[in-house]
Amino acid sequence: MTDTTTNIYLELHAIARLLHNVFLDYPTVDSIQYFDDNQLDQNWPVLIGSEANKKGKVLLSQFISQWQPDQINEVKLDYGQLYFGPGEPNAMPWGSVYLGEQQILNDQSTVQLMRFYKQFGISFNLKYNQPVDHIALFYSVIDQLLQKLLDEPTNKLAKDALVVLLQQHMLPWSWRFHELASEHANTQFYKAIALLAQDFESVLAHTMNIVPMPMRLFR
């Protein structure tokens, strides 16, 4: 692994961990304050300097510049209508609703993903029950696999797992998820996150020379 690739992996690893936390649960004052305290609108990695990256950072900067803790309910409401409910979320974070004609949770694509995780010995410790094709859990696995590649650049098993995960299980639908989130987000924060997550996935796929499998989407 060249120094350039190592640096990109380091940046992508940090982003994956952050995105996992952003998508997994409702925001809190502390989680939003983390963005402000660490000036992530300025310090978010440029990566390849795409338009999505630039626009995402501008939106994040606009949000952070006016952020006050008493705005947390507004951000929570946005998370709920996008990713959680009540009612059907506008940007459902589970792969099966995009990949299955019935658009239900735990469909055949979820079963295939569970089989893949079992094959590669990947497991989760979840504080509450969640289908394994939730977008946040994909970022958790990417985080783990990138860490393994940083520790052992020749780890073929980790690289193969990451390629299959992205090519077959995540990238065929995640772009649509982020597109819906960007369209329906009411706060600059989640509009920014949608763009920065799209940029992250694009750069990761490019870095690993991955072309997503073409699949029909139902949402």
Rank of each mutant, 00 (worst) to 15 (best):
Trp67Ser: 00
Gln68Thr: 13
Asp70Gln: 06
Gln71Thr: 05
Ile72His: 02
Glu74Thr: 09
Glu74Pro: 05
Lys76Ala: 09
Lys76Cys: 08
Leu77Trp: 11
Asp78Asn: 01
Tyr79Gln: 01
Gly80Arg: 06
Leu82Gly: 01
Tyr83Val: 00
Gly85Phe: 00
Gly85His: 02
Gly87Leu: 04
Ala91Lys: 00
Ala91Tyr: 01
Pro93His: 01
Pro93Gln: 01
Gly95Met: 02
Ser96Asp: 00
Tyr98Ala: 00
Leu99Asp: 00
Gly100Cys: 09
Gln102Thr: 08
Gln108Thr: 11
Thr110Pro: 02
Gln112Ala: 11
Met114His: 09
Tyr117Phe: 09
Lys118Glu: 07
Lys118Asp: 04
Phe120Lys: 05
Ile122Cys: 07
Ile135Tyr: 11
Tyr139Lys: 10
Val141Asn: 07
Val141Leu: 13
Val141Arg: 02
Asp143Leu: 13
Leu145Asp: 06
Leu146Cys: 08
Gln147Glu: 15
Gln147Val: 10
Lys148His: 14
Leu149Gly: 02
Asn155Ser: 13
Leu157Trp: 10
Ala158Ser: 11
Ala158Asn: 07
Asp160Phe: 15
Ala161Pro: 14
Ala161Asn: 07
Val163Gln: 13
Val164Met: 09
Leu166Asn: 04
Gln167Cys: 11
Gln168Cys: 13
Gln168His: 13
Leu171Met: 11
Pro172Val: 12
Ser174Phe: 10
